[in-house]
Nucleic acid binder design. Structure first.
Lengths: 339, 339
DNA sequence: AAGGTTTGCGCAAACCTTTGCGGAACTATT
DNA sequence: AATAGTTCCGCAAAGGTTTGCGCAAACCTT
């Protein structure tokens, strides 16, 4: 097996000085004479010395590790957020350890405990779909451990959060449908307990109200954001006595599933049914017809979350919880252009 | 700020015994009497004691952290591999720290050094596109640090690797085109230095040879796997005096880009040009026409890589390098069904 | 009862780094 | 020449855990 990496002791013994002298020489402490300082730095350079972060961590009780928990590692949305977090972390000398909750409340709790055992300095996370009880964050909040939620959030008065303007965006979508002449507008929403679901539903209703349309229960269906569930929801909508001629999916995956089902039933998009997604993946431009969608700044969400995190790290006193709301905008493509 | 978590010392003082006794009691050491053992374990449970991994790491020179370097965090392929690695790591009590090389050789070296500074126990990685010099792995190999490459690999006689049967798969694709009646078969390949590029080109040539077709230089173009580059490659192929009627893209992203460009030029798929991708993302079923592609077991690649890693961790002696080759298979969809 | 064995626990070192304090050797002052 | 003041460096503790060794008390043997 590999031998021990070189430590202060190695340098100290080689130069016949004490470890404290080496430690100080490395950071140009005035107490150390110029010749020794130079010799130490030279040897350190030569031997590629780098301080052991474990020892430092033990001493300072800091690991420079940020715990990140996401419901899912594979989707474009979360992976690009992770990428955003990673880029900021890296710039600031932090490491990120990622765990997936697989959309499970139990797993989410496990991940959290697990990361705390590792002694991460704080947590950046997105709630799982199942999570309705938020008491597992009590400890973190009481002990002022840095904590940031993004996208799906809770306890916003106590915890810093990064979200997008879901309500405004959903309202725009609805209004866009109306502008294009669609009147029977349905919404395939997410799980009821999520803030993003509630906000987008509210925006959907705002849009209806603004354009003088009435909200109809039958045109609002929920899904768990999986493909199968979204397909079922679409089927349910299209089977209505008066089916919708426009569908707003809670995210792009939902919209893609809806698109497949609509086509399968022999309906044309956007002639028979118009379709809009949310979060704008690259693939929105590849499907046919190309998908009108909300441009969701995922990478920036990650960056913002990391910035909030670092700000918490660097402020000693407890600040009031901050909520960063990122702007979205609607990208209009073929799935809503009635021809 | 948060106070110190509870340590062995806390327990020892509370129970008026020594830290060594607590340490041993916690692991049911026979030297410790049953009453003390019970009391210690009870209190530890109650106070939620968990050993400080930093202290353990310092002592045993182990961190239980695996460094993972990928060229890109965002694509489906890499994120699902990461997911596979994470799942196995988690089961075995390991953590993963992820870094992105952004397809850059310099960044890749940086990431490597960086992770080594963190004292990871080893590395699981995929080479960047730019990497042609492999000497930055000398240290790791000499010191027998666990190392696993996946997908894009090098130094296969020294390092464990996980790959798919690229050559066989590419051969199948070509033969499939021929079966469907296509004769002018082009290949948009990846960067020349990558093993996956070489292997897929070889398989492409095998397929041509097996079916009595001649390889033509003009029908083989390279791209850097970016959308723009793949679009340019497609344009180049379609501009040939005798353009291809079948295109095999080195991965799905390339195929999607090709698909967009083919449509843009008013050509029909698969009537005018047939198309096949490689790695089968979910979106292959959403695009129109649905994309024939090679089913790439990404999640399993990650799991296999992690298993190889753990095997290295647990064997003291140096074993000969192992190469795991995962099977793929062709999923036939509409982009190659001539109607 | 005296010897030996077992049982049960604590001391201290080791892993690596930082840092307050003490101390030796030197220079400068009176 | 003696005292005060610098300069430069080492000691030791702290952070948390494991573990070889030592040591005391209790047990068992004859």
């Amino acid at each position: 097996m590999r031998k021990h990496p070189i430590s202060l002791k190695t340098l100290a013994q080689a130069l016949n000085v004490s470890m404290s002298t080496v430690s100080r020489a490395l950071k140009n402490h005035p107490d150390i004479g110029p010749e020794i300082t130079k010799k130490v730095q030279q040897l350190a350079q030569e031997l590629q010395y780098s301080p052991n972060p474990l020892a430092m961590g033990l001493l300072k009780n800091k690991t420079r590790i940020i715990g990140v928990i996401v419901p899912d590692l594979v989707t474009y949305f979360f992976s690009s957020i992770i990428s955003g977090i990673e880029s900021v972390a890296e710039e600031n000398g932090y490491y990120i350890v990622i765990r997936s909750s697989y959309e499970s409340y139990e797993k989410e709790k496990e991940c959290l405990e697990n990361l705390l055992k590792l002694r991460v300095e704080g947590i950046i996370m997105c709630l799982s779909q199942e999570t309705t009880d938020y008491t597992h964050f009590d400890h973190l909040i009481e002990e002022d451990m840095p904590l940031v939620f993004f996208d799906r959030v809770c306890r916003t008065t106590e915890v810093d959060t990064v979200v997008v303007d879901n309500q405004v965006a959903a309202c725009h979508i609805t209004e866009h449908f109306v502008e294009r002449g669609y009147r029977r507008i349905a919404h395939i929403a997410g799980p009821a307990q999520l803030n993003i679901t509630r906000e987008r539903i509210q925006g959907y209703k705002d849009g209806l109200a603004n354009t003088g349309l009435h909200f109809q229960d039958a045109l609002l269906v929920h899904c768990d954001m999986s493909i199968d569930s979204a397909t079922a929801a679409t089927r349910q909508l299209l089977a209505l006595p008066q089916p919708p001629n426009a569908i707003f999916g809670v995210n792009d995956t939902t919209a893609f599933a809806a698109m497949k089902e609509i086509k399968r039933q022999g309906l044309r998009i956007p002639t028979d049914v118009a379709l809009v997604g949310f979060s704008d993946e690259f693939h929105a431009t590849v499907v046919e017809p190309t998908l009108t969608s909300i441009m969701h700044p995922s990478f920036e969400i990650g960056q913002e979350a990391a910035h909030l995190f670092l700000k918490q790290m660097h402020t000693k006193i407890k600040m009031p919880a901050q909520q960063v709301i990122l702007q979205t905008h609607l990208v209009i493509r073929d799935s809503t252009i009635a021809t």
